[in-house]
Amino acid sequence: MAEYDNLCKILAEKYPLDFTRWLLNQEPQKIEILKTELSIEPIRADSVTFLQTENRILHLEFQTTVKSQKPISLRMLDYYVRLTRKYQIPVTQVVIFLQETSDAIAFTNEYVSEVTTHRYRVIRMWEQDSALFLSNLALLPLAPLTQTDSPQTLLSQIAQEIAKIPDIETRQNTAAYTEILAGLKFEQDLILQLLREETMQESVIYQHILQKGEQKEAFKYTLRLLNRRFGKIDSLIIERLQLLSTEQLESLGEGFLDFSNISDLVAWLEQNTSG
């Protein structure tokens, strides 16, 4: 499970400004990634991130599992004391649990002993609204872990957002990050079906064709996508698809990822055409 924690650390250090905005709800004038020698547990070093703004340190820990050599709450106290002693500025600590669990540790935000109480923030990704993550490139790979009643709809929305990324390398990297983290929550078949980079690249081309109003080319791409999704399409259905306008093909292109089988396509045609 460490690979998931490490990936989140990579994202936080790749996009420190976005993570700081999200977790501190402020716009820092400057931000620095601290490469400080404070590691308490070497095995956890790949999941701990320290970001310093002009007046605060943000200490992030990503947790896929609640298991830990040292209790998480005690570790947070230990880091707090070390960071405060070394930098002498306020410290905000956030533990982000990635995978849904009912374990009490994921719902604990303090260390308590006879003489000491230390509090920190806890974020459970499965309780978070997806809207923020869908609208932010840096946070987009975390979107599959957010709250949803419809996994297929959420993954379709994520795929659409990834498809909008203009830079090819960034789009490919974001798709890879997202696919890995989605594996914590969804079946691999569903992930490959909706987040596969090749499909998203076709989506970009498809939207470009639609914008140019080339109905014949749009039909060809629509048919290609449907064939890959459901196998060879019946000739009677193809005839009905050929009669669709550019606007109808655009609507179908947005909706077909929600189809479970060919009967959903037939139902869509019944609802959206007169033939």
Rank of each mutant, 00 (worst) to 15 (best):
Y79N: 02
L74V: 01
A106F: 05
E61T: 09
T246G: 13
G183Y: 05
T148I: 08
S251L: 14
F133M: 03
V266Y: 03
Y111G: 02
E161K: 14
L98H: 02
S130G: 03
L58C: 11
A143D: 00
T148Q: 09
V66G: 05
P28Q: 08
H118N: 08
I180W: 05
T84Y: 14
S39F: 04
L244D: 11
E61F: 11
E37K: 14
T153G: 10
V122R: 01
Q157N: 10
L7C: 07
S113A: 15
I168Y: 11
T101D: 02
S235R: 11
I43D: 13
T153W: 12
Y206P: 00
K86P: 02
N136Y: 06
Q215F: 01
G213A: 01
P166H: 09
Y80H: 11
G231E: 12
M1A: 12
A163V: 02
E127N: 11
T146M: 07
E161A: 07
R85L: 07
L34I: 07
P144H: 08
Q63W: 01
I43F: 11
F107L: 07
L194R: 02
A175E: 10
T65Q: 12
P151R: 05
A104G: 04
P151Y: 07
Q147H: 13
S245K: 14
E161H: 09
F50I: 08
L249C: 09
K185L: 03
Q99R: 14
W22M: 12
M1Q: 05
V66C: 09
E198Y: 07
P90D: 06
P16G: 08
T222A: 11
E247M: 15
E110L: 08
Y87G: 03
R196L: 04
Q207V: 03
L11K: 04
L98W: 02
S235T: 10
M1R: 03
T49G: 02
A163R: 08
L257T: 09
E41F: 02
L11T: 01
K220T: 03
E114R: 11
P90G: 08
L98F: 03
I158T: 02
L11G: 08
K9N: 13
I123F: 07
T53H: 15
T53C: 08
T101I: 04
L11A: 05
T178M: 14
Q152P: 03
A131Q: 12
I40P: 09
T178G: 15
G253D: 06
R171W: 00
T174H: 06
I72G: 00
Q152H: 00
T84R: 12
K30S: 13
T273C: 14
A176Y: 15
A138H: 02
E3Q: 12
S260T: 04
P71M: 12
L155I: 10
Q147P: 03
